[in-house]
Amino acid sequence: MRPQPPPERAAVGEAEREKPHHDGHRDRLRDRFAQAGEAALADYELLELVLFRTIPRRDVKPLAKTLLARFGSLSQVLNAPPHLLAEVDGMGRSTALDFRILTALQQRTLRQEFRGRDLLSSWAALLDYCRAAMAHETREQFRILFLDKKNALIADEVQQTGTIDHTPVYPREVVRRALELSATALILVHNHPSGDPAPSRADIDMTKTIAATAKPLGIALHDHLIIGRSGHTSFKAAGLL
């Protein structure tokens, strides 16, 4: 007859058998991040750390890898539309909401990097913010940054949202809003959902019309940025303004 282990040892052994194998993985991943930072983790492992928060009792490594394979990058996963995230088996509404919260935090943090500062001397921070806010939008947005005489940000407003390849822009409305805010300068920003930031003929003509309408009223147009997933175009740098 095989000897039986003491009751307390038997209880511990049973608990270890029932404990999900991924519990130890979660602890090890958190410890590695705490000790070595994000550089020590692969993209899917960073995504796992986010998924741990809303999926507490499941191995989320397969889901993290599936999301990256489906959308292509961490940035595209976190910015994916909720209806597309819902198509991935294992994704729930609360997890999709967590992704939206993360992107909102990122955008607000980046925007605060240049608040109260000369925007023209904070150009890298401005580009980071515009990319985070617009590069992954599935429809065109036309955004205006209204500046004061010290080139500090007065307001950041999305004036229009259009289709996948067109946004209606009304130069008189742009200038009227600038006058309401007592802005003395503008930076125009819009995205190309196709990913290609090259300006169209319509983009160029619209920009020239806004510049010509604003100038007699003492409002300068500093630049027009087109944001795409593959990069950006500055009208000023390209000699189009």
Rank of each mutant, 00 (worst) to 15 (best):
residue 4 Q to V: 12
residue 132 A to D: 05
residue 67 L to V: 09
residue 32 R to S: 03
residue 149 K to G: 05
residue 113 E to F: 12
residue 3 P to E: 10
residue 127 L to D: 00
residue 213 T to P: 00
residue 24 G to C: 02
residue 140 E to K: 05
residue 70 R to T: 11
residue 111 R to D: 04
residue 134 M to Y: 15
residue 153 L to A: 03
residue 191 N to Y: 00
residue 197 P to A: 03
residue 206 M to A: 06
residue 160 Q to L: 04
residue 188 L to C: 01
residue 27 D to S: 11
residue 219 I to H: 09
residue 235 F to V: 00
residue 91 M to H: 09
residue 180 E to K: 12
residue 230 S to P: 05
residue 14 E to P: 01
residue 113 E to R: 15
residue 131 R to V: 05
residue 201 R to W: 04
residue 76 Q to W: 11
residue 43 D to F: 00
residue 14 E to T: 14
residue 241 L to N: 07
residue 38 E to H: 01
residue 97 L to N: 14
residue 109 T to P: 00
residue 80 A to R: 02
residue 186 L to M: 08
residue 168 P to K: 12
residue 61 K to W: 07
residue 133 A to M: 04
residue 85 L to C: 02
residue 228 G to R: 10
residue 8 E to D: 13
residue 71 F to L: 01
residue 148 D to N: 15
residue 204 I to F: 02
residue 168 P to E: 14
residue 46 L to F: 02
residue 22 H to L: 09
residue 155 A to Q: 11
residue 185 A to S: 13
residue 63 L to D: 06
residue 212 A to G: 07
residue 37 G to K: 15
residue 222 H to D: 07
residue 102 L to D: 00
residue 224 H to Y: 12
residue 162 G to W: 03
residue 62 P to E: 05
residue 150 K to R: 14
residue 79 N to P: 00
residue 194 S to G: 13
residue 101 I to L: 10
residue 200 S to M: 11
residue 87 E to N: 09
residue 187 I to M: 14
residue 12 V to C: 04
residue 72 G to S: 11
residue 116 G to H: 01
residue 206 M to D: 06
residue 131 R to T: 06
residue 181 L to D: 10
residue 241 L to D: 04
residue 44 Y to M: 05
residue 113 E to H: 12
residue 85 L to E: 02
residue 33 F to E: 03
residue 22 H to I: 09
residue 147 L to E: 08
residue 49 L to D: 03
residue 168 P to Q: 13
residue 241 L to F: 04
residue 158 V to N: 05
residue 180 E to I: 10
residue 179 L to T: 11
residue 239 G to N: 09
residue 32 R to Y: 03
residue 53 R to S: 07
residue 105 L to K: 07
residue 66 T to G: 06
residue 148 D to Q: 12
residue 119 L to W: 05
